[in-house]
Design a protein around this nucleic acid. Structure first.
Lengths: 124, 124
DNA sequence: CATAATAGTTTCTTTTAGGTAACTAGTAAC
DNA sequence: GTTACTAGTTACCTAAAAGAAACTATTATG
């Protein structure tokens, strides 16, 4: 966590920097699917993951969105795409080392989601 | 981090649960502004924060979006809204204890954003 | 009475996200 | 030749997100 400095102005400047950094993160990782896809691939690091398999297992995603999001993630060096010479052709997706650096983000979101669901249930 | 179990089926079931939890988180915290607003308010916990001040300091947000996002956050018990009897009227926003539970999420996003910017700079 | 401040709301418009369904292309099994 | 599988793409459409600008209401100042 960022240090809380005594000087109010410094603390506020620091906050502005933090918000800019968060904006950068959200530009790359934001939206409905990118973090879901990264989490899925990270959980499957030692398996070969094909397009159709992802589409089946990431609930609700369409071929169009999956294709588009995978391209975005590849451009940002978070995943790799390898065409395999099988019949029929298959394409193996996997998370890169850099992509694994997103794990702390998805982990806090998973934990918060679990906690949130508990909170909702107990408040009924 | 979630335990990696020996049994493939259990691991995959576990992954599905994780994705559902993440979907819950993203439903509440997703979008362009909510995490930014929560981070801002958390960084300002010991100050009184007014609507106009937020609009000035969270770069790029419009009054309409700020108003809408604050309502959503209030409904989800993440922030409080207190009208103050001043002339002209002011409204004080602050993060709730529950809202503070989002801090780990914003913190990982801030850190990832800082790291990502470094990576981009050194790759040029 | 004009100006300015707070805290929004309203209207209008554009942009983006996202969904559905049909379609391509290659190959293999029946 | 028909069906089925992979891995997408394309076209069409709707809904949601988002932005800009004008506007409301209240009160104080000059």
């Amino acid at each position: 966590m960022a240090k809380i400095k005594r000087d109010g102005i410094l603390r506020e400047a620091n906050c502005t920097e933090e918000l800019l950094a968060m904006r950068d993160s959200l530009d790359v990782l934001g939206g409905k699917w990118k973090l879901m896809i990264l989490r899925f691939l990270t959980n499957r690091t030692h398996q070969i993951i094909h397009f159709k398999k992802m589409q089946r297992e990431i609930e609700g995603i369409s071929a169009k969105m999956l294709s588009k999001e995978l391209k975005d993630l590849e451009v940002n060096l978070l995943i790799t795409r390898v065409v395999q010479d099988t019949r029929p052709i298959t394409v193996a997706y996997s998370v890169t080392e850099y992509g694994k650096s997103v794990l702390p983000v998805t982990e806090t979101l998973v934990q918060w989601g679990l906690n949130h669901r508990e909170k909702i249930i107990e408040s009924v």
